[in-house]
Design a protein around this nucleic acid. Structure first.
Lengths: 351, 351
DNA sequence: AGGTACTGTGGGAGCGCTCCCATCAGTGAT
DNA sequence: ATCACTGATGGGAGCGCTCCCACAGTACCT
């Protein structure tokens, strides 16, 4: 009666059991060898490995996932439309770091975009089904519900850039505060005295930290606080143009601008051009990100470099340890779960 | 004895069995409802759906995959380093189409890069483990072993651009032959008589088809064949520059060039500039792809547009039907499995 | 009345693993 | 010799589904 049990048997993929039979050992022993357990004698291990090779055995992921309650996969979730993902080098750099670090392991990376409501809906389903062991979350805004969803589902997650000073999720960030200070101190050392700042989106914590760094660098150098030298931007080119225009109107005598991103700086540059200001002769300009734009701008843009690729690697490290460690998150200390990486100023002709 | 069976029971995710108990039906019936089988009475279906909602039931993918021998996931395999993926709009357009079509279904998309040998190794393992139901293969060269591996593993696959005229895999392509003809006929209609062609990589079938289209358009218009007007390129900018330089040396009197890609055309443009030729006054230039480069070139480049996003959608359609249809591939007719989509000439100032 | 043919349903068996308990042989201490 | 231990191993039970067979009920023929 070749009924049910025969499903895909002959000619199908070999199973653990078949490997065990071939090697003349039990199922458990083969499992131990496959999973690298040390409690197997060398002779047995060799026999099993030979059988695995002969049969071309590959473990069935679904069966393993069902029995062990893990998937050996993690997701990189991008809460943005795909377009932005491709447009910004930030993501591709991060992906490079993530991929590199992950290639050391057996983990699989899924790339998931959640830009539209529909996509977010699908993502929620996906996470609820626990189809990944952990999640990497990049570019999250202050009011995003995703981190809470992850916490509720008890899925380990690492976020790039905390949402606030009180972030409870594990995170890896660059030193936004320090980076901003570097930028401003650089401008001061070049003899600039009237330094303006165009901010990033104010609902992004990193943008806030850059404002703090800007303020503190100035006051530490003995400059009186002047909040009118700060103008809100939103990380976009148009935002930079708009903000720069407003700043020039308010402070025709300013001699330097620190922009919260290179793209913003590009917008600012345009406004400066239109106003007849020369860079860097009349106004020095510093950006943030050290992206391709910075190198190709005319004149090349001084910028603050973030080690994005390394951030990607560190995020994976953190996430994998969280996944391995499956204790309730509250048990662990926050210290080792919130990394801040140093930034570096890259001086170019614009300052 | 709360030993094994208790694993994750209390507070864990609800199971089919629990839903069945709640709805007062059997396990099989719940399964039928979940999977949309028509053989369930309306009343029962409603009861089950209520229970599902109350318990917040989400099927366990691993269990389903194990029992049903399918994963509900497909992979988009890019046999290129990530860098190229991000650099070329081709991929992002295709991804957009793929994502759009897939969002209609419950299928999950995995993005897998296989640029390095190491990555290819991992991919082979991944495929051998049958972790996806099907594969979308983009940008494959003639000698790539991947398609054969897929065939051997009996994994349904769709390729973007057949490897040769005898391609056996399902494929979706644009009409390279027709596109090339359009380009050449356009140049002829503009009164150009000495039309050269810079080819793409010769191991790419689509590049061969473009050469064929170029040849036939000329001979159909009564032009004598002149193979010295054809120069090999490789889709890159440097290749275009090199080829154009060679062509100018051989045929100083040529008055038009059809390049196998926009990037190639950009290289050709540079060579033409250096040789003091004006575009389009002295030499008309036509590219292929209608990428962002074409629009931003100086002068804007006439180019042949491929409907890449639609190609992505069609590839998914084809793949899903292959996956659904799980008959041996040989049974099916090739006709419906090899699509060719029309191209369109976008005239701009360069011709 | 009996037969045939559905439709709707319940539940056993099985997918291929991991986990854990039981077992067994070997080792050294008593 | 006996009694722990220890390290290596076999195999039962179970993960949560799908598939399919069996069966009850109803309807429509002979």
């Amino acid at each position: 009666m070749p009924s049910h049990g025969a499903r895909g048997r002959s000619g199908g993929r070999p199973t653990l059991e078949e490997v065990a039979a071939r090697a003349g050992v039990g199922r458990g022993t083969v499992s131990r060898v496959i999973n690298g357990s040390p409690r197997v004698s060398d002779a047995t291990r060799a026999a099993v490995e030979a059988a695995v090779a002969e049969l071309g055995y590959v473990p069935n992921t679904a069966a393993r996932a069902l029995a062990a309650n893990r998937t050996d996969a993690i997701a990189l979730v991008v809460p943005e439309p795909e377009t932005r993902f491709f447009a910004e080098p930030y993501f591709s750099d991060m992906l490079k770091g993530v991929g590199a670090e992950l290639s050391e392991t057996q983990m699989q990376l899924l790339l998931i975009f959640a830009g539209s409501d529909r996509e977010r809906q699908r993502l929620a389903q996906y996470l609820a089904a626990h189809r990944v062991d952990g999640v990497l979350l990049v570019s999250v805004h202050a009011d995003d519900p995703l981190p809470d969803l992850l916490a509720q589902l008890e899925i380990p997650a690492v976020i790039s850039g905390p949402r606030s000073a009180g972030e409870t999720l594990a995170s890896v960030d660059s030193d936004n505060y320090g980076g901003a200070r570097q930028a401003v101190e650089h401008l001061l050392s070049r003899g600039r005295g009237r330094i303006a700042h165009i901010t990033g989106r104010l609902d992004v914590y990193g943008a806030q930290r850059r404002i703090d760094g800007y303020r503190d660098a100035l006051s530490d150098a003995g400059h009186a606080a002047d909040e009118t030298l700060i103008e809100a931007g939103d990380f976009t080119e148009e935002g930079g143009l708009r903000a720069m225009t407003a700043l020039l109107e308010r402070h025709p005598d300013l001699d330097a601008v620190f922009a919260a991103s290179d793209v913003t700086a590009a917008g600012a540059r345009q406004a400066l051009r239109e106003a007849g200001r020369r860079i860097p002769d009349d106004v020095a300009l510093v950006g943030y990100d050290d992206s391709a734009i910075a190198r190709h701008m005319d004149p090349p843009l001084t910028s603050v470099r973030q080690p994005i690729e390394e951030m990607g690697r560190r995020m994976i490290d953190l996430l994998l340890s969280e996944v391995a460690d499956r204790r309730p998150a509250a048990t662990r200390s926050l210290e080792r779960r919130q990394l801040v990486l140093a930034t570096e100023l890259v001086p170019r002709a614009s300052s």
